[in-house]
Design a protein around this nucleic acid. Structure first.
Length: 928
RNA sequence: GGUCCCAUAGCUCAGCUGGUUAGAGCAUCGUGUUGAUAACGCGAGGGUCGUUGGUUCGAGUCCAACUGGGACCA
């Protein structure tokens, strides 16, 4: 029966699917965007406007994208889409970091498996192809994520023009006389045969043999000691003993002469007890004490090499472990090196590139050729050294010791510290460090602690070791004569850069030195020398640190310095810093105006994610949840801290996604017969409820704009979420169904609501756009064109600034009170409902009694005409009741239920037609 | 070990310059509707604000230490 009337209702209609099926449907939207040239359209739209330049940090091109990449790129995307909607010109050139050890390592391994050993130039070709392969994959995955960018003009650190720029950066360093060559202890990976940057090292638990070694002090009489005297050192790297040149003590510590049995040992007094217990000494006593500084230059003897090992003073000696007497090998440790320089000791390193002892005339025969590399938990050199120490009686004790030790990130083997010739950039020369620190202050750091962090990093960093003994990178343009003397010149480098700009750096590996230098004017000191080209490559941090020159500078479309760098907080030590140094040295200032950082991905419980987890790949999540859900997840979190990820979290985001989608869908579907030009009412003529709803979306627009401006996307998310679930779904939409469905299509109230829907949709969808561009664009297409795709894409629409004008605080305050009162009504209705008296709220009548002098009751009276609708009930009754508190009562409705609108009336229509209907429905149908 | 960051309901977040019984959305449970229907409404439960001290008349909010987690560095 009532089904007939259903057909007379204006029920919502839309082709916009309820089910998103994102994993499947998003790719076709990517295709559509490409087809219509959306990126270019966006640039054209804002052409000539002020620019907002975000400079893209290049991901390393050696594998599948994972969620961390998505986090970073999505944040950039959100920023740019938002800025574009604000009318900024937002050219976006994505980039790729192509050179580097991890790629070379992988490629070399593949070649090894095939039994091939290629010449450098061919190896580099393979590396090139390898990175290109991953660039293609990564690019398509970024596109799949929805990244709208200038993929035609992406930058790559391996492109010839870019490589030339890297060399020019180096040339500017050389020009300012900052580059020097020096023997210096560096981390050295034996399997990779290369020095490692700090960034290439990871610390892991490691078990080393810790040993106590006695260094005999012949001149014991000067201390009044008769029994044999020795100073005792403690070390966890026995293989460095052959390189020992000194024993360091702290000048202000007190040292004890500890007599036990037939020997006297010199150790720090505070550690004497520990020492005795470590060695299991039972009968011991301190026979004398002495200040560390009095021990300076006392001679001790190397335990098995005929060589003096003087006692030296050093502030870094502590009493936290060991004996307070520190084994010092200047060629094998940073601090030892400093001490060596101070005392004029040789920077002695008898270990060669392969990690084996050299035959240098000092290393005993039994050690020559022994390896210091640990293989299967065994270090051959340690064994031999321990044996020699034991034979000489110097080894007091050996016990296995577990500690955190640096490992090569690639080969996973323990690294060694070893002095080799390297190229360095002098950080403190010409006040460069001071300039860098000064430049930091000109940058806006978000969050603000970033400034503290990079300042600490810049203050603490040692000179920049820029050479690597690798092939896949930009060659260091240095030449060597027959004596091994190095030649480097800024003019020559610039000239070579010009050649590289067209030929690429492979030139270095396919040409002789003469060919390389052909046509280049050589400095005087180079004349007449037979020169060979060097084989080192540059630290890849110079590669990426040069991007702002290679990409931004001299590009009229872009800007230098740029507005924003946006990367993970680890880049305070990495890219932010390398870019800062190159910027400051070569151009006198930081290349960025602001830095925004995000945290790291962690599990739901806050623990670290394992990077090797295959399920972390971006495509896994694209297929399972779709890009918009992933993006919404990113937007929902406060990314300045660590970002949690789990199925639980994502399914929560999935709920929010469905809420947004259905909200948009509900609005579109109720606008099916609405033509803005024909039916819209002016904002100030809208019915008060609609006026209120329009106010609310204006409020939302203002709040989200502020949040976007502050890069607080999680606030955008929270605001939108509450807007959709409370303001719309629970209140406005629910209340409006009656009007939209049951009134005559052209009824002014219905058109009023549709006008509001229209504005709310247009505003809300644009607010959501940067965060969930696929769904927003899809909804936009259905809204504007009634179909899945449109050329006039959502991202081309400007920010809904007009919405701010719609706010009406007085009206809003009334509604806050009315809706608060609505909660009280709902409680009463719920009581009726659980008593089984009513089902939907329309089945109830509500009566309210209150004091006509009270403000809240007056407000209800003022809005009496709207209350039935607001509370979604069939009848409201206000009763004056002086001197009493406001009271609410709900009863089951009486009379008849209109089969069309389901509202109850005491008496249904007794008109001539449709006699079983309520008067309003009868009226609605009359005009149909 | 050092520097820095974080810690509020199962989840994601609010809680401004310290001030009555700590909020929201989601999730959960109960329930209604079947004219947004793999959707929507209504109601309810759920937090000793990481711990311990301190400052204060009063602290989630300030200070210190500790615990846990994270980043970077040694």
């Amino acid at each position: 029966m009532s089904d007939n009337y259903k057909d007379t209702l204006n029920l919502p209609k839309t082709a916009f699917p309820m089910r998103a099926n994102l994993g499947k449907r998003e790719p076709s939207r990517v295709e559509h965007w490409e087809k219509i040239g959306l990126y270019q359209k966006l640039q054209d739209k804002n052409a000539g406007k002020p620019a907002f330049i975000l400079h893209d940090g290049p991901p390393f091109t050696n594998g599948e994208l994972h969620l961390g990449h998505a986090l970073n790129k999505t944040l950039k995307e959100i920023v740019l889409r938002y800025k574009a909607s604000q009318g900024f010109r937002t050219p976006y050139l994505p980039g790729w970091d192509c050179h580097g050890l991890p790629i070379e390592h992988k490629v070399t391994k593949e070649l090894q498996a095939e039994g091939k050993d290629l010449p450098t130039a061919e190896l580099r070709d393979k590396c090139d192809a390898f990175s290109e392969h991953w660039i293609d994959i990564q690019r398509s995955q970024f596109k799949r994520l929805g990244v709208l960018a200038d993929w035609e003009n992406e930058y790559k650190t391996k492109k010839p023009a870019y490589e030339a720029e890297i060399l020019r950066t180096l040339a500017s360093f050389v020009d300012q006389d900052l580059v020097y060559r020096s023997k210096k202890p560096v981390y050295w990976s034996i399997p990779c045969a290369t020095a490692l940057a700090e960034a290439e090292i990871e610390y892991k638990e490691h078990t080393s043999p810790s040993i106590w070694v006695a260094f005999d002090i012949p001149s014991k009489e000067q201390f009044g000691i008769e029994k044999p005297l020795s100073v005792v050192i403690w070390t966890t790297t026995p293989w460095t003993i052959p390189a020992n040149l000194a024993v360091a003590v702290h000048p202000r510590l007190t040292y004890a002469f500890l007599e036990a049995g037939d020997a006297v040992h010199l150790v720090a007094k505070d550690l004497a007890e520990q020492f005795a217990s470590d060695l299991g000494l039972e009968d011991w006593k301190i026979v004398k004490e002495i200040k560390g500084e009095e021990l300076e230059n006392v001679e001790s003897r190397h335990p098995f090499i005929d060589r003096a090992s003087p006692i030296v003073l050093a502030d870094y000696v502590t009493t936290e472990s060991g004996t307070g007497c520190v084994h010092t090998a200047p060629g094998h440790g940073q601090e030892d090196y400093m001490t060596g320089l101070k005392y004029g000791l040789d920077i002695y390193c008898p270990v060669n590139d392969e990690g084996k002892y050299d035959d240098d005339g000092q290393v005993p025969d039994f050690l020559v050729g022994e390896s210091v590399l640990e293989e299967k938990g065994w270090v051959p050199a340690n064994g031999k050294v321990l044996k020699a120490l034991a034979e000489s009686g110097a080894l007091l004790k050996k016990v296995n010791y577990k500690h955190s030790y640096p490992h090569c990130w690639r080969s996973k083997t323990p690294v060694i510290f070893r002095a080799v010739d390297q190229w360095f950039v002098a950080i403190d020369k010409e006040g460069k460090r001071a300039s860098a620190l000064e430049s930091i202050k000109d940058v806006k750091w978000i969050p603000d602690w970033g400034e503290k962090r990079i300042t600490a990093n810049v203050e603490a960093r040692p000179d920049w070791c820029i050479s690597r003994q690798r092939s896949w990178g930009v060659p260091i343009p240095a030449f060597y004569d027959d004596e091994g003397e190095a030649y480097m010149d800024a003019g020559v480098i610039k000239a070579i850069a010009d050649k590289v700009a067209t030929a690429g750096t492979n030139l270095w590996y396919t040409s002789t030195a003469e060919e390389l230098l052909e046509g280049i004017e050589l400095p005087e000191s180079w004349q007449g020398k037979t020169l060979k080209a060097g084989t080192d490559t540059l630290d890849v941090w110079i590669d990426s640190g040069t991007s702002h020159f290679a990409v931004l500078k001299d590009n009229d479309d872009l800007a230098w310095p740029c507005d924003l760098y946006l990367e993970g907080s680890d880049q305070h030590r990495g890219w932010f810093q390398s870019s800062l140094w190159t910027g400051v040295i070569r151009a006198g200032q930081a290349p960025y105006k602001s830095i925004l950082t995000h945290g790291f991905l962690v599990n739901e419980d806050g623990s670290k994610l394992s990077k090797s987890d295959g399920a972390m790949t971006l495509m896994h999540y694209m297929d399972k949840f779709g890009s918009d859900v992933v993006r919404l997840w990113i937007a929902s979190t406060d990314f300045r801290n660590d970002v949690g990820i789990s199925d639980n979290i994502l399914s929560g985001v999935g709920n929010a996604y469905r809420l947004f989608r259905n909200t948009l869908r509900f609005q579109i579907s109720n606008l099916f017969d609405f033509d803005y030009e024909k039916h819209a009412l002016p904002i100030d003529e809208l019915h008060e409820l609609d006026r209120w709803a329009v106010h609310k979306v204006g409020e939302l627009a203002a709040a989200t704009e502020k949040a976007y401006d502050n890069y607080e996307f999680h606030k955008v998310f929270q605001l939108c979420n509450q807007f959709a679930s409370v303001t719309l779904s629970s209140l406005y939409h629910d209340i409006l169904k009656d009007r939209l469905y049951t009134l005559a299509p052209d009824h002014s109230l219905r058109r009023s609501s549709q006008t509001a829907f229209y504005h709310i949709f247009k505003t809300f969808v644009r607010i959501l756009g940067p965060i969930m561009p696929f769904t927003a664009d899809e909804a936009w297409s259905y809204f504007t064109a009634g179909e899945d795709f449109t050329e006039d894409a959502l991202v081309l629409q400007d920010w809904p600034s007009e919405a701010k004008e719609w706010q009406d605080e007085n009206l809003a305050n009334d509604f806050i009170e009315l809706f608060a009162f609505r909660d009280k009504v709902n409680e009463k209705l719920e009581t009726l409902r659980s008593a089984g008296e009513i089902g939907r709220s329309l089945d109830a009548y509500v009566s309210i009694a209150g004091n006509p002098d009270a403000e809240d009751f007056q407000r209800l009276q003022r809005y009496e005409h709207a209350l039935e609708e607001l509370f979604i009930i069939s009848r409201i009754e206000l009763t004056d009741q002086s001197a009493s508190e406001l009271s609410v009562a709900a009863t089951k409705a009486t009379g008849g239920r209109c089969p069309r609108c389901w509202r109850w009336e005491p008496q249904l229509s007794n008109g001539t037609e449709n006699t079983e209907l309520c008067s309003r429905c009868a009226e609605a149908l009359k005009n149909a």
